[in-house]
Design a protein around this nucleic acid. Sequence first.
RNA 1: CUACCCGUGGCACAGCUGGAUAGCGCGUCAGACUCCGACUCUGAAGGCCGUAGGUUCGAAUCCUAUCGGGUAGGCCA
Length: 584
Amino acid sequence: MLTLKNKVASLIAGAIADNFGSDILTAAELAAMLEYPPDKAMGDLALPCFKLSRSLRRSPVQIADTLAGAISDSELSEVAAVNGYLNIKTEPTSFAKRVVSDIQSQADSYGSPHTGEGKTVVLDYSSPNVAKPFHIGHLGTTVIGHSLKLLHEFAGYKCVGINYLGDWGTQFGKLIVAYKLWGDRSTIEKGGVDELVKLYVKINNEIKAEEDTSVQDKPEGTPKHSELGDASRKEFSKLEQGDEENLALWRWFVDVSLEEYQKTYKLLGIEFDSYKGESFYTDKMPAQVEKLRNMGLLEIDDGASIVNLDKWNMPVCLILKRDGSTLYPTRDIAAAVYRKGEYGFDKAIYVTSAAQSLHFAQWFKVVELMGYDWYDKLVHVPYGTVSINGAKLATRTGNVILLKDLFSEAIARVMEIAKEKNPDEEQCRRIAESVGVGAIVFYYLSNNRMRDINFMMEDALSFDGNTGPYAQYTYARTCSVLEKVGRDAAMTDAPLGEHESALAKTLAAFPERIIQALADYEPSVVTRYILDLCAAFNRFYHECSIANCENNDLKQSRIALTAATNQVLKTALHLICMQSPEKI
RNA sequence: CUACCCGUGGCACAGCUGGAUAGCGCGUCAGACUCCGACUCUGAAGGCCGUAGGUUCGAAUCCUAUCGGGUAGGCCA
């Protein structure tokens, strides 16, 4: 695919060779030097010639002047030298013609860099803990992870989405005890994961109370103790040994939780390729521990087995507890080894909170020390923490918003508005789901993932300004216009105005934004592109009549531009987990 | 104490592989629809880019120091 930058870069490369007899810079290097001028009056592309000054041994002004006189092309209307900058303007009509015909011919694949063909990437994201609330804190990993999956698929990668469920650990011992004491099958069948959470919270409170009582009036340092805690450990140990009753309960808890998470995933249009959770890897850890021990990487420190990472300026990585049981890093290493064997990935992406950055840096290093040559294929993609309306998330104080509640609130608000326009209840429901959920997703994916996000309900559900509904509304508008005038139109030679050519330039920028989004693992690049495209289209739409345009050639061009916008918008919305309803 | 992340108009954020006059949205103020969907568009006010040095022809962007906020740091995940 020949982008404008590449084309201009090769023209410049040719001009440099002709006029300075130098080929020290390749077209690709020149393309990287090209930039977009701050003011469109200056041009559409610019080359600051300061960068060439040293290697060509001329002054920037001299270089710019020479190049300006040496470059001409049918797609370029003006090449001018201004204070050491080489400013290039495109000829709007032929440029737009090429962009739109690219979009028409490539359709759904327009914008794909095709860099992933024949490669596999596994993405580990969402990964909620069974029998714990699935709340707004999980939104980041879920939507960033899925968007990255879609982006990689778009680039041609074979993708494996893994939901690494938190489905193992001592919490299940607690849950089993709680269920046996206070639980009731039909209540849980009816109330789902919420009921499990209630049981879990209740037993944790009871254990804490017992522990506090146990040390009352005792000397300082007396170990805390609780009957329920003991019982829980015992039940978990039975579970580990394959006790049938406990295994059945555990399986059931997992199923009940998963069933509910699926509803949320369905709203987001997410499906995972694997739900192998922590439990799956329990029997795969000993081999890795053995390998570590054989390689002499393990040290015993205060009874625990660790890998010392002093040399890399990191705290020690704990592999085994004093009692010999495994830890988080152990399981992650075993999982990575398994996945490498199973999928032969070219890249393994983990999307988790930035709070876990050290943990990932540590076990990635351990994988390297173990001699696995794919250690550099592991990528941690962190994101900032979420607070709600300025306050931290806290289950205890009730400052949590469950994802299902968040989405139903959003859907309900859209329903209110949609009802007025759409009498058909079923259709109304579908629109409300895609717009309501889309509003939340768009809001979340609007900013740099590393920034801590303060989730403002009012802003997230707002319909004005740079929002999901604005983007979807713009898409619906393109559909509406095209329904009226038809989709089949090609660009003509009719001269274009500033709004048409601004739109064409924005459409042309899509491929490089996708490349950037992939390079930075940053879905917000796509979100921001969508806003740019919507703004360009809405300006065009407002100023230029499409259906009622009297000049038929111009009308054809405008229809073609609208169809191209429709195509690119649809692709882009999809890449950030948004639906694109044709009517709102 | 140590490491990482974030500090840009009242609010919430772009721009950060150095480049020409720092952008968008919300809010505020003033405008635009006999016209393809007004959930749209146009204009104005509002910022010495946390602070101080340094590198450079050129710094919001790179380096150093410092302040403020967040997160993590051996038996949780």
